[in-house]
Design a protein around this nucleic acid. Sequence first.
DNA 1: CAAGTTTTTTACCATTTGGTAAAGTTACGA
DNA 2: TCGTAACTTTACCAAATGGTAAAAAACTTG
Lengths: 204, 204
Amino acid sequence: MTSTARKPSRIQTENRKRIRDAALGLFSTHGFRGTTLDQIAEACGMHKPNLIYYYENKEAIHIDLLNTLMEEWLSPLDAMNPDGDPLEEILGYIRRKMEMSRLYPRESRLFANEIVQGAPRMLPHLESTLKPLFDRQCGILAKWMKDGKIAEMHPAHLIFSIWAVTQHYADFEAQISVLLPGDDKRARGADQFVEMMFRKVLTP
Amino acid sequence: MTSTARKPSRIQTENRKRIRDAALGLFSTHGFRGTTLDQIAEACGMHKPNLIYYYENKEAIHIDLLNTLMEEWLSPLDAMNPDGDPLEEILGYIRRKMEMSRLYPRESRLFANEIVQGAPRMLPHLESTLKPLFDRQCGILAKWMKDGKIAEMHPAHLIFSIWAVTQHYADFEAQISVLLPGDDKRARGADQFVEMMFRKVLTP
DNA sequence: CAAGTTTTTTACCATTTGGTAAAGTTACGA
DNA sequence: TCGTAACTTTACCAAATGGTAAAAAACTTG
């Protein structure tokens, strides 16, 4: 029985990464169907058949991207410490989300594209990976509320609102930059507003 | 000199509408590039060349959709009355936005797709139509704040947060329905949460 | 360094897709 | 009701696109 999966060589690891990086930029702004293999190839300085050498097909690149990025994208949520100070834990999470919107807008938009279009390639992953994590965090929030540490509210909707507001700055940047031009202190203004907002909401 | 623009016939008006309706459903879930003329044609029971008879090309359908829907999409913002009760005016706006997320998720996702991908076909429209409206509403909010009617904060970011939270329920429905299954009272829970949230934020 | 293996490149192909030409059909005003 | 303009359908096409075949080049290892 021959081994079907060999461990990847140095070149393989490197080139797959180059491909993912180029594909991330393109998929996140043009969507899956709006991106061609030729575009990806040119963006990473390779030839089209070379992409297919590393990935079975176009969809495999997209799926690998989603899977690879999913866990680091969710890691801040997992970092919420049940034994820490509730308000500070949540605000810390919000700050990390704002930071990620600023540092990794491509990742944010990649997921936004995928979800807006009905998550055709990610639904199973949402079920299996995100859902348990989400439920656990809802549990932590619920306990903090029951203990009177933060205001009582529906934990799930609280998380939704945090995601909505923080990711909005990455996903809708095209709109925001039209409505609020004069770039320099926009990020700080956003951070301050969001912190103020959730502090108010969460204070019992 | 022959007239270049004739007034549209009854059939023209009807069929253009049929096309727009079919295209709205497809563009909003598959994006512009992810939707084919054949799909649109089948969805509205026409043949492909017939689409081209009514619209110059595929892009013209998309542009017409965006333009046609833009103003009704923005109308609730314009309905905010500067002389009304500030808190109630804003909460009323938020309620209408939540209602629109529920009744017109296709429109919401159409715009979301467009903006996430950098608004390639809508940037001018954002500048010319949305921006003035947005600035005016920011002015109204600022005045309410100065008068001490609502809490002091950055008006633009307040509007962003309202858009983010309300549209999130339409745009990210695929995710929400995984995380919060058992559909029946989700909409009411969302309404209640959002109202509670912004009431807290806005109360001085 | 020679033999084998991995990686890259060139040339190509089948399908999809946006769009056209033109004949056929229907609606409608005089 | 007849002629014309509006509309629909059939048959087609060229370009774009995802993907393949196979030779050439580069790298690895005994």
